[in-house]
């Protein structure tokens, strides 16, 4: 029913909710990054010209997801950087992470698919089902 890893937008009244799944937490985080880029970018461009490395830390896995996405939203708001692909480079310490994010800059006059303003903790819980882990993320728009 589900691919090995991925994400899907599900209904949420005033905001946007996505369901994400993957075999490992690292991959879940990578899918969350890809989902964010997919929610922002209107055009399917594979021009992943820019690469950024993030060093982030949190107290829990859930908080690490929120912190990562918030950092990327900040970069989008500040520089127009759209994250398209993430690779967790190091998660040796449980909640300290080094992530390489590839993406591109929003072009002049390029519209966005959604305007994401924040990442919430609403209903955020990582659950396991069989050999996959799942989570829902609600974005404030």
């Amino acid at each position: 029913m589900y691919t090995n890893r991925g994400f899907i937008e599900t209904d949420h009244g005033a905001d946007i909710r996505i369901k994400i799944w993957a075999p490992t937490f690292e991959q879940l985080l990578e899918e969350a990054i890809k989902a964010l880029g997919n929610l922002i970018a209107c055009k399917d461009k594979d021009l992943q010209k820019i690469s950024k490395t993030l060093f982030l830390k949190s107290s829990t896995k859930e908080e690490l997801i929120v912190t990562t996405l918030e950092e990327l939203l900040f970069l989008f708001e500040k520089e127009g950087f759209i994250p398209l692909e993430g690779k967790v480079m190091d998660l040796s310490n449980k909640y300290k992470v080094k992530i390489k994010v590839k993406g591109r800059y929003l072009e002049e006059e390029e519209p966005t698919k959604n305007i994401i303003k924040g990442v919430t903790f609403h209903g955020l819980k990582i659950t396991t089902n069989g050999n996959k882990i799942f989570t829902y993320i609600v974005f404030d728009v």
């Binding site: 949420h12 009244g13 005033a14 905001d15 919430t120 903790f121 609403h122 209903g123 609600v138 404030d140």
Partner: peptide, 9 residues
């Protein structure tokens, strides 16, 4: 009222 996050809107 509608579905918010935490509190309802």
């Amino acid at each position: 009222i509608h579905w918010g996050y935490g509190f309802p809107i």
